[in-house]
Design a protein around this nucleic acid. Structure first.
Lengths: 205, 205, 205, 205
DNA sequence: GATGAATGAGCGTTCATTCAT
DNA sequence: AATGAATGAACGCTCATTCAT
């Protein structure tokens, strides 16, 4: 494992600048998206535009200057979450660290998405976006798969199922973080240990 | 282990008759609740009363003969889910089997709630109901705690956190069941193995 | 001119019963349409649904029980006006009376449409409906054309142009009727004399 | 008929300079009004300020530098139309030509108002402006009345009614001009012949 | 008891209008 | 002087809820 890119952290994340250009086009947009994610994570996805506007600190009509309609706002939020996710994974340099660190870093990425992750995890991702999600987490899933092929982790549960279970764990953990006042890193450790334990377990159990 | 309770089926589940009285007041009620759970699991929690009525096979106005308003319908669904959960746990005889079986049985109970469990797991449980939920799953959590105290499972993660993570796994698994065509028992096995692996893992990892 | 159908007056109006079935499906519908026509004739076509509802004597939401949206309400009004027009023309037995009577009767039909006619005349008829309108008034236009071919009326202005001018006269007259308190029959006579004068005038003028 | 006024072009039109002062205050104003008239004639009177601004070639906010609000813009358009009308009638020297020419010239004036006339004819003229309109067309109406008194035209229909009918004809004709590609002068001739025919017709018809 | 019809309240959206630059 | 950004008010429409049969 002689990769060094990790140091510059994401030197090989080509999609970053391009995407950022559109994502950071406007600070207000990002602020609204963040507010939306927070409202959704607390009041559920059927929160009204009025609530979003209020938390965003703008008038209801102003929302529509930035997003032509509710659907597009939601989709933009999803897009933003996916972008952050993709970017986070890329910067995490998943490919060049051992499995424990893979899980730790990916978990950290998800937690840093904060309420955006809750939205991502809770909402029924649109058909078009679901592939985008799968593509984004592919580096992690691939590590699961190769580890399984190499006999490093259990083989009695398909890697993608394990990954799905793992996501379930992160979801629960993310909720705990949002609701409680635990430290993010502590929760990362807990999740990582839990999941690694599950993965490393021999199938004898 | 000479338990006999199985015959009387939950003879030691004192809360059952009382609850049943209110929950089974009407067969139509149960049918509507089941329909509601199914609609919610597919179309999301903001499905309209019209959709619920249609799937229930009654007129929209008839819904209101059984549930004075939407909120009460949702609460009744939650109540029903909690009742089924409590009942299922009681019948599962969690207290008298080994840990692997505890997880397997509890997982099976959750899966058998089917769409009701998705609703239970997805919705932000109301403050009053949250204690009821905790009470219902207490037998399982207690097994986790005692196993931890006995040094049978890992001790580096609090038992309640482990239980929370476990619930996250079941949630993901439940979604897989609803969306795919896998066998329930296979999924039970996968979840159980995964979670047991996580629990049994020594903290050396 | 040996037609006899005139006596039974509209015995040969086959589209009547069929259309009526759908048009009279509901009395409320007809009442709403009438109210809509009246509101439009006074407050203009951009009157709000609230105004229409108020004049109709129903709640705003009730409008939507009968018409799924504003566009369909307007189209239904147009449809109703065209139906009444077609029916009126049919019953007027335009084909079997002399030209003076043709104009008189058609004018009367238009006036009896009252505010519906104002809507018909003022609104930009949708592309699909415009052919329907032309088809409805075809019997009258044909009388103009045949009269022109027979040399009974002036030939220096195309018949369809004359007919268009005639409609302009009726439109002005209809407004006068709605705004003033003149007798309908007096206005019919005025319009008929005016138009007949225009049509019969030799091109020497 | 040794008219001379033509040269000084409306020398006897006293209200012109005064009005011009306010109406020509700004060239942009006139451009916006013309654009407004065109938008209204095609998209209907409920065209949005955005559409008007776009066709006018200015930003939406700029409209408000010239017209404090929509109502005043509409009123200014009406004022402008009435001014053009008054001016056109004055220049047409209605008082000193024979009736045929009166109708021809007035018709021409209306057609030259083009889309402004459509707005004038279609909109429900405000109470205050209606008298102004009547005053503007008074020269023409007076010619109708005197011709009637002199027995030159039919007497069985009041002159003002005839004039109203005549306006209806011009309205239809104006629409034809806007929608088709006929020559303005041909349409003037058609209208004039039609109306003169109607007016000259003996009441024997 | 069950239902079609009616409605009040509220949502998403638009648009005329204002503000700050 | 001109404009992009912001917003209040209102509109079209939906939906939970009630009423009358």
């Amino acid at each position: 494992m002689i990769r060094k890119g990790g140091a510059e952290s994401g030197g090989g994340c080509p999609e970053k600048p391009a995407k950022r250009a559109s994502a950071m086009k406007n600070l207000a947009v990002e602020a609204i998206l963040q507010a939306t994610a927070e409202v959704f994570s607390t009041r559920g996805e059927n929160a009204s535009m009025a609530e979003i506007a209020e938390v965003s600190g703008v008038a209801r009509a102003t929302l529509y200057r930035y997003f032509p309609n509710r659907e597009r706002l939601l989709d933009s939020l999803m897009e933003s979450a996916l972008f952050d996710l993709k970017n986070g994974i890329c910067q995490a340099d998943i490919g060049s660290v051992e499995l424990y660190e893979v899980v730790a870093r990916f978990t950290r990425v998800l937690f840093n998405l904060s309420s955006k992750y809750i939205y991502l995890a809770r909402s029924n991702i649109a058909k078009e976006r679901i592939d985008e999600f799968k593509l984004a987490v592919k580096p992690v899933l691939e590590r699961f798969e190769s580890a399984q092929q190499d006999g490093l982790i259990r083989q009695d549960i398909p890697a993608d199922i394990c990954f799905g279970f793992y996501l379930g764990v992160t979801r629960s953990a993310s909720r705990m973080l949002l609701e409680g006042d635990e430290l993010l890193e502590d929760k990362v450790t807990q999740v990582t240990k839990f999941v690694l334990g599950a993965l490393l377990s021999s199938s004898i159990v």
